[in-house]
Computed example of a mutant assay.
Amino acid sequence: MSDRPTDDRPDPDHRRPAGVDDATVEALGSFSEALEAIEVARGHLYTFHRLSGTADLTLGKAVDQLREAGHTELADLVDRELVGRNVLQGRWTFQVVEEYDDGYYATFRRLEAEARERLVDGRRHLYEAEMKEDRRTRGVPGHEATPPDV
C-alpha cells in the first residue's frame, strides 16, 4: 500500500513554515541559486586541477620524446622552466583547490545553511518546491508532489 498522502501535497520538509513571507522565501531562493553557481564554479576548479595535472604529465612525456628525438637543449629548457611549475605564485592546483574549499566555499555553504536555519527551520529549496506546486498538474501521472515511497 502506498504511503502517498491523499491530498498529494509536498512533503513537510518542502513546505514553508508558518509565518514565513514571500520575500524571505524569494531571498533564500536567490541564496540557493547563488550556491548552485558556486557548486558549478567549484566543479570547474576541479576540472582545472585535473586538466592542469594531465597537461604537466603529458608535457613530461613530450620532454622525454624531445630528448629521444635528439632535441636535448630544448627538452632541458622545457623541463627546467615548465614541467612541475607552479600555476600561481607558490601553488600547484591542489593548493588552489584546498584554499578555495577551506575559505570561500566553506564560508558560502556555512552561511547559506545558517540563513536557512534561522529563517525556515533549515528547510531547503522552498522556492523551487513552491514553483513545482504552481507548475505541476495535480492528478496527472508524472506530476505527483512526491515519489511513491514518500
Rank of each mutant, 00 (worst) to 15 (best):
S2F: 11
S2P: 12
S2C: 12
D3P: 07
D3K: 08
R4G: 03
P5I: 03
P5R: 13
T6D: 14
D7T: 14
D8C: 10
D8M: 10
R9Q: 11
R9D: 08
D11V: 10
P12Q: 00
H14I: 05
H14V: 01
P17C: 05
P17R: 05
A18F: 10
A18H: 09
V20F: 00
D22C: 04
D22L: 11
A23M: 05
A23P: 05
A27T: 02
L28S: 07
S30R: 14
S30W: 13
F31Y: 13
A34N: 00
A34T: 01
L35P: 02
L35C: 00
E36M: 02
E36S: 07
E39P: 01
V40K: 14
A41Q: 13
R42A: 13
G43F: 08
G43S: 10
H44D: 09
H44S: 07
H44E: 11
F48V: 01
L51D: 11
S52P: 00
G53D: 11
G53H: 09
T54G: 14
A55C: 11
A55R: 09
A55W: 04
D56Y: 06
T58H: 03
T58G: 03
L59T: 09
G60M: 01
V63L: 06
D64V: 01
D64N: 12
E68D: 15
E68F: 12
G70H: 02
H71W: 12
T72V: 15
E73F: 06
L74G: 06
D76H: 02
V78Q: 05
V83Y: 04
G84Y: 03
G84V: 11
R85G: 09
R85M: 13
L88G: 06
Q89S: 11
Q89H: 09
G90F: 05
R91A: 15
R91Q: 15
T93G: 03
V96F: 03
V96C: 04
E99M: 05
Y100A: 09
Y100M: 05
Y100K: 03
Y100G: 00
D101H: 07
D102M: 05
D102P: 06
G103Q: 08
Y104G: 11
Y104V: 09
Y105F: 13
T107K: 04
T107W: 01
F108A: 12
R109Q: 06
R110V: 04
L111C: 08
E112A: 05
L119N: 02
D121Q: 14
R123I: 09
R124Y: 07
L126S: 04
L126R: 02
L126N: 03
E130L: 00
M131H: 13
E133M: 03
E133A: 01
E133D: 10
D134H: 12
D134A: 15
R136L: 03
T137K: 04
R138C: 05
G139D: 02
T146Y: 02
P147N: 14
D149Q: 15
V150F: 12
